[in-house]
Amino acid sequence: MDLIWEGLRKALELLLTLDSEVLRITWLSLQVSGAATLISLAIGLTLAVVVALNEFPGKRLVIALLNTGMGLPPVVVGLFVTVLLWRNGPLGSLGILYTPSAMILAQAIIASPIIAGISLAALQHLPQGLRLQILALGASRPQMVWLLLKEAKLPLLAAVMAGFGGVISEVGASIMVGGNIKGQTRVLTTATVMETGKGNFDVAIALSLVLLVLAFSVNAVLTHLQQRGRRP
């Protein structure tokens, strides 16, 4: 118990004094996971729209694959991306292993199926005739897609939350493709693992608290946006 209290005390101290290292790690975590979420949103939404609005052979298989992809283990993605990005590997010429770009890539691979899967379910849960109704009101195809997305905005926000929550809290892929390099690729989760390893439980607890607060505030903002559309 002493350790926890001491940890909490030190954690608060680090946070209240705005420790520059903690700030840097936090900001990088936000940037990496935010960018990965944005990329996943673009990929996931596109996939969801294409699958939801078109009939094609193998559609069920694609949906099954997307749903399976929602549970991609981060370490598997991390290993896969690392092997691809090794400088003697197939994508070695990019030279992005152990950079934030590699982490964004890995996290985007993790989050894209999550966002695609939830968005697809959201679009498929819209009323059956809504698509025809929108077209009957004179919408062009892009206008129709926009209106459908707008109608599904609440579950779509949930998809973004799930995607962001998934990647900001994952450690397996980030540590493998990022390398937890100080000042370059050290993010909240990898730093927490390292500080725990070093026995610096206080710092580890501080970082965990930041991670919690961060995950909580991002979700709070998104939830607020979500609730704003609904009047009592």
Binding site: P127, G129, A136, L137
Partner: peptide, 10 residues
């Protein structure tokens, strides 16, 4: 334009 059985309002 067309009106359906369900109002299908936004």
């Amino acid at each position: 334009t067309m009106v359906f059985q369900d109002p299908l309002l936004f």
